[in-house]
């Protein structure tokens, strides 16, 4: 691991400097994580009086539980849709901003601020617009003959949470695409233009391939965002309903553990989520290492 050519010779001081970070990591991260792993192989009776070691029974039950497998599918659909919608919209906006000169900074300011809106607040905002009784968008959609009601229709509920989650995430992707577009050398685009390539042709043969590292990075980040940071959106809009149609994995851990008090199952679900986070982090960091080499 990298460090400086010259360093300070102290023996105790570095440990003191690390102490706060380490103490918090051990007490609030490692210890709870270990506890989770341990209780995922236990089975507790409903009153919490005694628990018995059951090996991997909690995991086997999850693998056979149609609700849990359904939640996996729901999460996949939710994460994929959110990533595609927010990356697609952000890319179009970034390309448009890249063509404007004088007004670019005004547009950027007007587009980036939703990053600062809390997921739960974003959920309430979209829920208000799609409210079955007074929502403005509900009113407009009903005008076209479709009976929008996210409290009853599972597709409507999924569309609602995807829109709310994407609305918040577009600003983040937008900034990365703008940075990525600015780092593409003008000479490449000019050379292509002299050779007679129009804007669309230039986009597909030059701009998009050069943006692909950014796009891949954003794909990973957006999947992580949709899987773990959207708890507030789900809780504020649909609370996992109707009938589990928007019950993503993170929300199910909370519901089974904190509301349903099914501790063993909730712990096993947590462990599975940790494995997913570790896998995604590894993917993300391998990519970042490669980018550094460029």
């Amino acid at each position: 691991m990298q460090s400086k050519r010259t360093v300070f010779p102290h023996r105790v001081l570095p440990y003191l400097l690390l102490l706060p970070q380490m103490a918090i990591t051990v007490v609030f991260f490692l210890w709870p994580a270990g506890e989770t792993a341990w209780s995922s192989v236990l089975r507790e009776d409903p009153f919490g009086l005694k628990s018995s070691f059951v090996w991997f029974e909690n995991y086997v039950r999850l693998a056979r539980d149609p609700n849990y497998l359904g939640s996996f599918g729901t999460t996949a659909i939710f994460a994929a849709s959110t990533a595609v919608v927010s990356i697609g919209v952000a890319l179009i906006l970034a390309l448009a901003v890249d063509r404007t000169i004088r007004s670019a900074s005004i547009y950027t300011t007007l587009i980036v601020w939703p990053y600062a809106v809390a997921p739960a607040v974003a959920g309430v905002l979209w829920w208000f617009m799609f409210n079955p009784t007074i929502g403005i968008l509900t009113y407009l959609i009903r005008g076209t003959g479709y009976d929008w009601n996210h409290l009853l229709h599972s597709t409507d509920a999924m569309i609602l949470v995807v829109l709310a989650a994407s609305w918040k995430q577009v600003s983040y992707n937008f900034l990365f695409f703008v940075a990525g577009l600015q780092s593409i050398p003008m000479s490449l685009k000019e050379a292509a233009a002299i050779d007679g390539a129009g804007p669309l042709k230039r986009f597909w043969t030059i701009v998009f391939p050069l943006l692909s590292p950014t796009t891949f990075f954003l794909l990973v980040v957006n999947v992580v965002y949709a899987m773990f940071d959207t708890f507030g959106i789900i809780d504020a809009t649909t609370a996992g309903g109707p009938g589990g149609a928007t019950n993503i994995l993170v929300y199910k851990v909370y519901q089974d553990g904190f509301v349903g008090l099914n501790l063993g199952s909730s712990a096993a679900q947590s462990v599975i989520l940790m494995v997913i986070v570790i896998a995604l982090t590894v993917v993300q960091f391998r990519y970042i290492e490669r980018k550094v080499e460029y």
Partner: peptide, 14 residues
Amino acid sequence: MLPVEVRILPTYKV
């Protein structure tokens, strides 16, 4: 790798 959402119950207990 350990977001709060993933280790809800034990962290609450601590």
